[in-house]
Design a binder for these strands. Sequence first.
DNA 1: CGTCACTTTCAATTTCTTCTGAAACTTCTG
DNA 2: CAGAAGTTTCAGAAGAAATTGAAAGTGACG
Lengths: 204, 204
Amino acid sequence: MANVETKQLTEAQDRFVAAWGKMGTAWGISRTMAEVHALLYITGEPLCTDDVMERLQISRGNASMSLRALLEWGIVERVHRRGDRKEYFHAEQDVWVLFRAIVRERMKREVDPMRASLYEIRDMTSERAGERGGKDAKDPALAAHNKRIDSMLEFLETMEKMSASFVSPAGRGLQAAAKILGFVGGRAEPRPTGSKPDSEREAG
Amino acid sequence: MANVETKQLTEAQDRFVAAWGKMGTAWGISRTMAEVHALLYITGEPLCTDDVMERLQISRGNASMSLRALLEWGIVERVHRRGDRKEYFHAEQDVWVLFRAIVRERMKREVDPMRASLYEIRDMTSERAGERGGKDAKDPALAAHNKRIDSMLEFLETMEKMSASFVSPAGRGLQAAAKILGFVGGRAEPRPTGSKPDSEREAG
DNA sequence: CGTCACTTTCAATTTCTTCTGAAACTTCTG
DNA sequence: CAGAAGTTTCAGAAGAAATTGAAAGTGACG
């Protein structure tokens, strides 16, 4: 039967979906959301809510929520087909674009608030706040504390700047850097198995 | 009372612990573990299990588990005091060292397994596996699938190499890069609120 | 402007994690 | 070696998060 390959493919897709889902949870993304994304990525073609539901065996609500979240993250886009009222969803296919979107979102959602908190916390114990003495090296414990908060802040600022310039400007900062610095260039060491030269590239 | 400052300090520490804990959960680290680390970091001095239990209001078992996990991550170390049988714990104070340790561990725990899975998955559908035909461009869908897996793999390899050379070698790759590239250098822009001139700086 | 074809929402439920606390264990000390 | 001081383990309890499914919402089409 011609379906030997189809079966192989389906099985491989399932494994990919599972692996991606597992990784997602480790990074604070709900398993289902990661799985939905994996499915869209690995099939490569637009799927509708029902496709996702069926393939992943999840409820309509869950599928809908996950898809919307993915849209918000900017790594999946709506596709309309003429003559079909249904909405289809298509995952970004360029891994680097995907990565940039993820970094951007995570910085926005997790690092920025942390930074804001740190500013507030610093202001709680800044010399100005103690006010009365006017002096500064009053309490060495307080000074040490402030120093720790400040180095944390300085670190976050640096990360922020780096990620910003890697993620946004012309678009492909990190990728370019990786190429220039010689990190890119195909398989690490030619593994016994696959040996395809990096013929493809430049997806998006 | 001299405790005005002490109270301020304690409060600031609590806020820091809470913020850090919240961030931890977003990155797949249990809240308590993150909080314990935050406490050790922000107090700066070695604390024993009971100190942690009391300050964080958690059970002995929980404190013990969290501390051990932090040791495994390599971001907290045991300290012994002569004439005292208790074990004390001290958190790494250099933010960059901390960051490197975290990256190293996360790569090891989450990226490496993913990479391994991807290799397996690729082998499921590599040309060799289909065997019968011996040819290669047989099924275009299969080929496209393989291409996707491969670009994912290539991406992970690149990240792996970059993080490795940023994280391990002489030790301070990223930090040096940041400095050279001009990302480091104090507050981004003077925020509207805390207008305090950046008199302090240079923490670690 | 009512109906149809979908999509979204949300309270109840299920599932998964984390936390507790007491018992078991280890290791020093006299 | 018995006892004290401290640490680790783990089964069950508590809590948090994800999932369901049915009801409400949306808007295009005739």
